Structures are given as C-alpha cells and as structure tokens.
Computed example of a mutant assay.
Amino acid sequence: MAGNSFGQLFRITTFGESHGAAIGVVIDGCPPNIEIDQDFIQGELDKRKPGQSRITTQRKESDEFQILSGIFENKTTGTPLAIIIPNSDQRSKDYDHNKDIFRPSHADFTYEAKYGIRDHRGGGRSSARETAARVAAGAIAKLFLQKSGVEIFAHVSGVGIIEAPEPSSADLKQLETIRESNLVRCADENKAAEMVEYIDGIRKAGDTVGGRISCVIKNCPAGLGEPVFDKLHAELGKAMLSINAVHGFEYGSGFKGSEMRGSQHNDIPVATNDPTKMETVTNFSGGVQGGISNGMDITFKVAFKPVATIMHNQPTIDKEGNSAEIKGKGRHDPCVVPRAVAIIEAMAALVIADHLLRNQSVKQNFSV
C-alpha cells in the first residue's frame, strides 16, 4: 500500500487502523535539539480526540501517546521519531452488519476494488482515526516552527448554512481562548452558540452536516515554495485534501477572486525600507505569489462534507452487486469540523516545516 508518507525533508509515515492495536507515525528528518513539550503534544491530541462533547462521536479514546525513539534528555536527536497511540475503545461488532455490503459514500467499495480485501471495522486504514497520528507529528512540527516565530491558527468558520465573520482581532492568543471556550471551536462567540445548537439538532435527527475551517499562518518568511509542481499553495492543498471528508480547498481570495477584476484583485505593495519584507495593501494572494510565500499572512479555507454515516437505514448494494439495505448504527460525529481544527493546523505545520528545511538547504547550497 503506497501513499502513507508525506513531505520530503520533514517526512512522516503513518501506520495503523481504526480497530487495530494502535496507530502511529514515524517522523524522519526532524532537526536535532528541539525541546519536546509532551504536555503540548497531548494538548494538541486532546483537541482532536473523540468523545470530548455531545456534538462529537462518543467513542472514548484518551489518545495518550508514547515516543519510542528519536529523543534523548527530552530533546530530539535528529534520528527518526516513532510515536504510537494505542486504540482502547473499539467496538468492532458495531460493523458486523456491513461486512458484505457497502456503505454509501464510504471507501468500502473503492478499497475492495483496489485491494480485493478491506477491513470493514470502522473503515480500517480509511478511518479518520488515522489523523491522530498526523496531529502528533504536527505538534512536533509546531515545536520546530516556534524557533522561527511561525504561528498557525485555525477555527470553524462555517457549519452548514451558518457562516461566521472573519475574526476582528489579530491576537491569536485571544482568538484561541475564544475558540477553546466553545464546543464547536469557532472564534466568534455568538456564531459558535448558533452552530452548536444547529449541530445538536442535526445529531438528534440522526443526520450529519458539513462545515468549513479557516486557517492563517503568521510570520512565515518569504521564499518558501518550490516552482513548478511544489508550489506552496499546491502543497497546502494536497495536505488538506488528504484529510478525510475534505471536499474543497481555497487560498487567498479563493473562488471569489474569479469574480473580480485585476484592478481590484492586485495586491499593491507598500514601502517597508526592508528588501527582505513584503507588505501589501490587500492580501488577495493569500501570502503566496508564484507559488512562493511573500511574507504576508498565508490564508486558506477548507470545506468538509457531511459525515457519510447517518443514523437512518439507506439503500445500497452488496459485494455481489445486488440491492441491499444498510442499517444506521455506531458512534460517529454529526459534524467533523470541531475535531478537525487540530488536523488542519497539524498538516499546515508539516508543510511549512518541510519547506523551511528545503529553503535552508537551498541557501546552504548557494553559499558553498
């Protein structure tokens, strides 16, 4: 099975299944002498873990991790870090009813078609449980990025038809406090309450709903990104679209930019008296021009589809192609976005960490 690794210099490989003994990640290329804050890593995992509120899945996992290698005296050594997160609350019997039938809009049929075998217990490798390993790796990447002053902040900016306004404050600590004070992880308190009520109603009706997460990367240095095929926004897009249930990605002005004229959309530079910095009146470029960061805030938005498992019986087909019916049962999120905030930040951190190392490598080669 290919496709389990991400990144070039800061490279991760995840492993494990939803109902296996554990999931985990190997991080290769992490620089040495990074102080490992295990409480910080656990805090990132806690934002993603299941069972944290009434509007998330009720599967109970502590998501306590163990670092098996790559650290000495609480600092990275530059050798591969291996992290495991045990699974403890599997209910494999909840999936016995769909052993021989395909759930609508899941990866059941496609895995069967590709491999001729599939783990029907929670989707196996296709389960969003795998993303806990990414969050652990992303936390390591964040600790590395702290040395460069890079900050990443994501929040739920939309659920269904409810849209939150852009945060008025630029203080990420203040926004994080607001975000973590509500169940949906929205940086707008009024819209957060509306979203929670809406999701709870969807949950009680046995249905699911999609949503949107906005993310900003601050203090990212200019010059990150590799033309032509490894443009920074392309790398971020791949990272986000690799997350379960993601159906859309846009950066900067996104699709709205296609409605504008060039005279409206161009980001006009202003004098800074510093040749290493770029400041513009607007930021429709989303901090990326020509596939390379320009030093402005990198902004993007990610859209998630509704969770495919609903608590209603639905028509489907079995492995022989015959008509069948799937029963609505199990423990699932009515909306994934509250738990996905940590995943978005983790994947963004992995992309920036990788490209920061790639840029340092380029500069070293030029200086030789």
Score class of each variant (00 low, 15 high):
Leu241Trp: 05
Ile268Arg: 07
Val281Gly: 03
Ser285Lys: 14
Asp274Ile: 00
Met278Glu: 15
Gly295Asp: 08
Asp297Trp: 05
Asp267Cys: 10
His247Phe: 03
Gly295Lys: 02
Glu279Ser: 07
Val281Cys: 03
Asp274Lys: 01
Ser263Gln: 14
Gly290Pro: 12
Val281Trp: 06
His233Val: 12
Gly295Pro: 09
Tyr251Met: 14
Arg261Ile: 08
Lys301Gly: 02
Ser253Thr: 08
Val246Arg: 12
Leu232Ala: 12
Pro227Leu: 10
Leu236His: 07
Thr299Trp: 00
Lys238Ile: 08
Lys301Asn: 13
Asn283Cys: 02
Thr272Gln: 06
Lys277His: 11
Ser253Ile: 14
Ser253Asn: 14
Ala303Asn: 07
Asn244Arg: 10
Asp274Met: 01
Pro275Gly: 04
Val281Asp: 00
Asn273Ser: 12
Met260Gly: 02
Val288Ser: 03
Phe229Trp: 13
Met260Lys: 12
Met296Cys: 15
Phe284Gly: 00
Val288Gln: 09
Asp297Leu: 04
Glu250Met: 13
Asp297Asn: 11
Pro269Leu: 02
Thr282Leu: 06
Lys231Ala: 15
Val288Phe: 08
Ala239Ile: 11
Ala245Ile: 01
Gly225Gln: 03
Glu279Phe: 07
Ile292Ala: 04
Ser242Gly: 09
His233Glu: 15
Ala222His: 01
Gly225Phe: 09
Asn294Phe: 01
Leu236Trp: 00
Val288Cys: 03
Ser258Gln: 11
Asp274His: 06
Gly291Cys: 13
Ser253His: 06
Ala245Met: 00
Ile243His: 03
Met296Ala: 13
Gly290Glu: 08
Gly237Lys: 09
Tyr251Phe: 15
Asp267Thr: 11
Asn283Arg: 03
Gly254Thr: 08
Met296Lys: 04
Tyr251Trp: 13
Thr280Gln: 01
Phe229Gly: 05
His247Cys: 08
His233Lys: 12
Asn266Ala: 13
Ala239Gly: 05
Phe255Trp: 13
Glu226Phe: 00
Gly223His: 09
Leu224Asp: 07
Pro275Glu: 06
Ile268Gln: 13
Arg261Thr: 14
Asp267Phe: 06
Val228Ala: 10
Leu232Pro: 14
Ser293Ala: 13
Gly291Asp: 00
Pro227Asp: 09
Tyr251Gln: 05
Thr299Gln: 05
Ile243Met: 06
Gly257Cys: 10
Leu241Gln: 11
Gly287Ser: 12
Ala271Tyr: 04
Asp230Cys: 04
Ala245Asp: 06
Phe255Ala: 07
Ile268Trp: 03
Ser285Glu: 10
Ile268Ala: 01
Asp274Thr: 01
Gly291Ile: 08
Gln264Trp: 02
Phe300Arg: 02
Gly262Gln: 12
Ile298Tyr: 04
Asn266Ile: 04
Gly225Ile: 12
Glu250Leu: 13
Gly291Trp: 07
Val246Met: 14
Ser285Asn: 15
Thr280Tyr: 00
Met278Ser: 14
Glu250Ile: 11
Tyr251His: 15
Met240Val: 02
Glu279Arg: 11
Glu279Lys: 14
Ala245Val: 07
Val228Thr: 12
Val302Met: 09
Pro275Asn: 00
Lys301Arg: 13
Met240Ser: 05
Ala222Ser: 15
His247Tyr: 01
Pro269Ile: 09
Ser253Gln: 02
Tyr251Pro: 03
Val281Arg: 09
Val270Leu: 12
Lys238Gly: 07
Ala271Phe: 06
Leu232Gly: 04
Gly262His: 09
